[in-house]
């Protein structure tokens, strides 16, 4: 079942073509890795897939329905309910406890407190960070922070997780742990797309694409 389909997407930054008539399809259960040099357009593609950015031309389909790039509230709703993000810098709010960081999408969904508590505790147990719930992000290690970020991405029960260099700031051992976690989630049916330079991640993924000069080619 196709989750996201991009057809003939193009994007320019001033005169520089970043994405050139690119098409890609992500289905349920996919674990995709996108590799490429810096400036190849990997992150731009990830942002367009995650509805954080808009393409200059082309079609974006979610669950086979075309998404109007001007419909901000629908895009926000999809990000809130269907698309999880994990980034290299973790994107956690340092002034809020781990609990609140994980619960952020639920606050936006206006879930009641009891339900939020139940969901956060359940997901944090699954990821193995239950004991960290009352700590602040600055009290955690890099690997713990990334687990919190993954828990936040998962709490909305997403169709897909988009990860931008998720292990870029981690040591090798923690990297392995995070990748194992991704694999586990993928087995549970969550599609995962990882943008990285890291060959180890590519080895784990089922599908590998290489991006160069705004175009994409499947390697695996």
């Amino acid at each position: 079942m196709t989750i996201i389909k991009l057809k003939n997407i193009s994007k320019k930054f001033k005169e520089r073509v970043v994405l050139n008539n690119l098409s890609i399809e992500i289905s349920k259960g996919d674990m995709i890795c996108i590799m490429g040099r810096s400036g190849a357009g990997k992150s731009t593609l990830l942002n367009i897939l995650g509805l954080l950015d808009t393409a200059d031309s082309g079609v974006y389909e979610y669950n086979n329905k075309e998404i109007d790039s001007g419909n901000e509230s629908l895009k926000a709703k999809l990000r809130r309910d269907k698309i999880g993000f994990v980034v290299q810098t973790y994107a956690l709010i340092n002034q809020k406890k781990v609990f609140d960081n994980i619960a952020l999408p639920l606050y936006f969904k206006r879930k009641n407190k009891r339900e939020i508590k139940q969901l956060v505790e359940s997901i944090s147990r699954k990821i193995g960070i239950f004991e960290l719930l009352n700590k602040y992000p600055y009290e955690l290690s890099g690997g713990e922070c990334q687990r919190v970020a993954i828990a936040r991405a998962l709490i909305r029960e997403p169709d897909i997780i988009l990860a931008d260099e998720p292990t870029g700031a981690l040591d090798e051992e923690t990297e392995k742990e995070i990748l194992t976690l991704f694999e586990k989630l993928n087995k549970q049916g969550v599609a995962i797309l990882i943008v990285t330079h890291n060959q180890m991640i590519a080895d784990v993924c089922k599908t590998v694409y290489l991006m160069s000069e705004g175009k994409i080619a499947q390697l695996k």
């Binding site: 954080l52 990000r79 809130r80 993000f85 999408p105 936006f108 936040r152």
Partner: peptide
């Protein structure tokens, strides 16, 4: 940015 990433809009 974190809010937008997690489901709110810039509006």
């Amino acid at each position: 940015s974190i809010y937008i990433m997690n489901g709110t809009s810039s509006k």
